[in-house]
C-alpha cells in the first residue's frame, strides 16, 4: 500500500491563495497523527536503540552505558539466529499457502449466485476473531496425540499417531498449520476485496462465449488480480512476522527450541529468563526490526525488478 501511494500521482495543487488560507487547517489535521506517531512510535523506536546500548539487569534498576557489546553478543548468539531461521521458515511456508488457499476460497465465495455465500464468508473469517489464548488451548485438544480428532482420523486410515505439538519434528509444522487456519480469513477478505475490482460483465461476456471456469480464471481473474498479489503477499508477510501470541500459547517456543520464533526469544530475554536482561532484549528487538525491513525491502525490490522486466519484454 505504501508503495502504491508514493508512486501515485501527486495531489492536486490548489491555488496558492487557497494553500495559504488552509495552512492552519492542514497543520491541525496532521497534528494529531504527527504528535501521537512521534510519541508512541518514533520515540519508542529511538529509546529501544538507546536501551540496546545499556547494561540493564532485570533484578536492579541501575543502567549503565556499554556501547555496542550487546550487538557483538547477539550476532554470535546461536539461539537468536535459530529463532530468526524459525521465523523465516514460518514466513516462507505459511505465506504462499495462506495466500493461495485464501484466493481459491475468495473466488468461490465471490460468486454472486453461490448460495449461503455471506454465511460462509463469516465462517471462514471466524478464527481471525477468536482470542489467541483460547485457540492455543483448543488446538492442544485437537492435535492431542492420544485422543485428538486428527489422530483418530489417522488411526482410521491405518497410520501411526503423530505427537503434533510434543515432538520437535512436528511442532513447527503444527504451529504453521494453526497459524494459517487462524489468519487465512483476513487474507481471504483482502482477495475478496481485490475481486470486487474485476468487472462482472467480463465474466458474463465470457460465459456467453462459452468459457469454462478454468478459462475464466486463467484469462480474466488472474491477469486482473496480479497487481494485488504483491500487496496482499506483503501484508501477509508483515502479519506473519507477528506469530508471537500463538506460539507462546501453543508451545512456548518448545519443545527444545523447535518453535522458538524471534519475538518469543526476545520476550524470554526481557521477561521470563532466570536473569532477565532488558538491554539485551532491546538489542535483539532492534536487530529483528532491521531484519524485517531488509526482508520486506528486498521483497519489494524483487517485485519491482520482475515487473520492470515484464514491462520491458511486453
Amino acid at each position: 500500500m505504501a508503495t502504491t501511494l508514493t508512486r501515485s500521482a501527486p495531489p492536486p495543487t490548489p491555488p496558492r491563495s487557497a494553500r495559504a488560507r488552509h495552512g492552519g487547517w492542514i497543520a491541525l489535521f496532521v497534528a494529531p497523527t504527527v504528535v501521537l506517531f512521534g510519541l508512541y512510535t518514533l520515540w519508542p523506536s529511538l529509546s529501544s536503540v538507546f536501551y540496546s546500548m545499556l547494561e540493564w539487569r532485570g533484578l536492579g534498576t541501575d543502567r549503565s552505558f556499554i556501547g555496542l557489546s550487546h550487538y557483538e553478543r547477539a550476532l554470535a548468539d546461536p539461539l537468536f539466529w535459530r529463532s530468526v531461521g524459525v521465523t523465516m521458515a514460518i514466513i516462507a511456508v505459511t505465506v504462499p499457502i495462506r495466500v493461495a488457499i485464501a484466493l481459491v476460497l475468495a473466488i468461490m465465495l465471490n460468486n454472486p449466485r453461490l448460495p449461503l455465500a455471506r454465511l460462509l464468508r463469516t465462517a471462514f473469517f471466524l478464527p481471525v476473531v477468536a482470542t489467541t489464548a483460547i485457540v492455543g488451548i483448543v488446538m492442544g485438544f485437537v492435535l492431542d496425540p492420544s485422543a485428538g480428532p486428527v489422530n483418530t482420523l489417522l488411526e482410521l486410515l491405518g497410520l501411526p499417531p503423530v505427537d503434533f505439538l510434543g515432538s520437535s519434528d512436528t511442532a513447527l509444522g503444527s504451529v504453521m498449520a494453526v497459524h494459517i487456519w487462524k489468519w487465512m480469513g483476513i487474507t481471504m477478505i483482502y482477495w475478496l476485496a481485490a475481486l470486487q475490482t474485476v468487472p462482472m460483465d467480463l465474466y458474463e461476456a465470457a460465459e456467453i462465449d462459452g468459457a469454462g471456469t478454468w478459462h475464466k480464471f486463467r484469462h480474466i481473474t488472474l491477469p486482473m488480480l496480479t497487481p494485488f498479489a504483491v500487496i496482499i503477499t506483503l501484508l501477509t508477510v508483515v502479519e506473519t512476522m507477528q506469530v508471537f501470541d500463538l506460539v507462546l500459547t501453543m508451545t512456548g517456543g518448545g519443545p527444545f527450541f523447535s518453535t522458538l520464533v524471534t519475538e518469543v526469544y526476545i520476550y524470554e530475554q526481557a521477561f521470563t529468563s532466570a536473569n532477565p536482561n532488558l538491554g539485551y532484549a532491546a538489542t535483539l528487538g532492534v536487530l529483528f526490526g532491521v531484519l524485517t525491513v531488509i526482508v520486506v525491502g528486498s521483497l519489494l525490490l524483487i517485485t519491482r525488478l520482475v515487473r520492470g522486466r515484464k514491462e520491458v519484454t511486453a
Binding site: 508512541y40 512510535t41 519508542p44 508483515v238 519475538e263 532484549a281 526490526g289 524485517t292 525491513v293
Partner: peptide
C-alpha cells in the same frame, strides 16, 4: 515504520 514490530515498545 509500517514494518517495524511494535510489540516490543
Amino acid at each position: 515504520t509500517m514494518f517495524i514490530p511494535t510489540g516490543l515498545f
